[in-house]
Design a protein around this nucleic acid. Sequence first.
DNA 1: AAAAGAATGTAACATTTGTTACATAGTGAG
DNA 2: CTCACTATGTAACAAATGTTACATTCTTTT
Lengths: 211, 211
Amino acid sequence: MNREQLIKDNFSFLFEEKLLDELSQIGNIKKVNQGDFLMDIGQEMTFMPLLISGAIKVFRTDDDGDEYILYFIEGGDTCAMTLNCCIRGAKSEIKAVAEVDTTLLLVPISKMEDWLHYKTWRSFVFGSYNNRMKEMLEAIDSLAFMNMNERVLKYLKDKVIANKNETLNITHYIISDELNTSRVVVSRILKKLEKDGELKLLRNQIKILKL
Amino acid sequence: MNREQLIKDNFSFLFEEKLLDELSQIGNIKKVNQGDFLMDIGQEMTFMPLLISGAIKVFRTDDDGDEYILYFIEGGDTCAMTLNCCIRGAKSEIKAVAEVDTTLLLVPISKMEDWLHYKTWRSFVFGSYNNRMKEMLEAIDSLAFMNMNERVLKYLKDKVIANKNETLNITHYIISDELNTSRVVVSRILKKLEKDGELKLLRNQIKILKL
DNA sequence: AAAAGAATGTAACATTTGTTACATAGTGAG
DNA sequence: CTCACTATGTAACAAATGTTACATTCTTTT
């Protein structure tokens, strides 16, 4: 599919005609594979990515190499808001990784401001900020109000949505890493969830039974 | 002091002349006392508050009545970004309370978009969003990477900054509430911090010794 | 097939955080 | 001053989470 058509198909429900034209001229299509880094630690953002297909996961990392998953950005969501706000920070940073094979539309950072005279762009930009904020608040809810058991289950269910697949190819170790806990704790909790009929455990794989 | 002068004095370093005029015409000065609610749970925001003096604390609350402090908005910070993004949410909500006696400039929500043609307004709005996000990330850092000991100390130090006063008038119970833990836990930690020479405990009062 | 490596299961124990219970001390109302 | 109330101190215990250690099973390499 040619890129102009791709942009039309994915963004015509969001943006007005003239803005779509500009996007076609200026935007760059980029495909990334599962596991690819979108933003390395400490790197400055020079483009803003709009999600065309796939899913991204976003982490907070601290200087000891610990990480904690903040949220998934998936299909209907459409926009990976630039988080350049926080790249400068001293201690902790943001990390973004492709959760599955993903297609992005890259737009130079400067366009974000230039296009604010488009009403549809304004809605999009503010809507995206608000979505990011909502997701960060959800991450805070998990940490402040939920126990490990609930957090693991929420993580898995979010992952099912991001992957559009109830069978997750993942190890206990990875889960423990992304939730900043230990593998043994995760295995223990998963075993309990399996006994409760929430999921089924296999090697390198977890099937979520209840959504 | 008349309001026009107040607006000039506080925002002339931020906004261009014409925008200051608009602010003077449209903005409303509001004074709130320590402890007043700026935003009740579930309430829709119809104005955006710009901080003139004082400090605001912002909480996340869940449906069990538990709360967790997200951040303080203080002096130099200047803007309490409207968090209307999340007011709709089902389970959890945002709560904002005056940490000290505070003066605000209230601007109708609609102006946020109307004024985007002012370059200084654009910088302000995006800068504010980014600051809010940075602070939410700090809250996540505390929860994900720090133990109770460190979190209590960070809370107290943030509070010193918001109050511009190293002597805090506060009870252990309030701290435990705002950090979503229990009073006994807080008393235990404070006692240890006192032994370590970090602070001095008095009735209804804590003096922070090291910053 | 044997060996090495990765993923998982699980017990035993340590640490952190939360809970219950009660004592003591300061404060304000009457 | 006495009484009730609030704030704080602290012990003892409970629950949640983290750590260490090792066994078992599956997969890949040789």
